Amino acid sequence: MVIELLKFKVALDLGEDFIQKDAQIWTTAPAEYPGFLGKEVWISPNHHTEVIPIILWATREQWKALPQADLPTIESKFIPALGESYSIVESAEYQVRKFPHL
């Protein structure tokens, strides 16, 4: 499994709206593609302007097979919903390795 981690800085008064629109637009769209396993959104109790979506993919190949041409179309639905009240501050990739219980 591969984890796609994104970190957004969101206007303080739009955090909950960002999370709801993200679920409606940026979660439903990738769910249509093979390899999408799910998504979590992490909120820091200490940094109220940070929103961290964690996207789970079966394989890196399936994640990277997401058609790049589709991304601007998805984003074009998201921007009108929130305006320019957010910015991406980090993007990272992690592999999950499971170990047997000791």
Rank of each mutant, 00 (worst) to 15 (best):
V2N: 04
E4G: 07
L5N: 08
L6S: 05
F8C: 05
A11W: 02
A11E: 10
D13H: 13
D17F: 00
I19K: 01
D22A: 09
T28N: 13
T28G: 08
G35M: 12
G35E: 03
F36L: 06
K39P: 00
K39W: 01
V41A: 03
W42P: 05
I43F: 09
S44M: 14
P45F: 03
H47V: 15
E50P: 05
I52S: 02
P53Y: 00
P53M: 00
P53T: 01
W57A: 01
R60E: 05
E61L: 12
Q62Y: 04
Q62P: 04
K64Q: 15
A65M: 09
A65K: 10
A69F: 11
D70S: 09
P72C: 02
T73I: 05
T73H: 03
I74W: 04
F78H: 15
I79E: 05
I79F: 07
P80C: 03
A81G: 12
A81T: 13
L82A: 14
E84T: 11
S85L: 04
Y86R: 03
V89G: 14
E90L: 02
E90T: 01
A92F: 00
E93M: 06
E93D: 07
Y94N: 01
V96P: 09
K98C: 09
K98F: 13
P100Y: 13
H101A: 06
L102F: 15
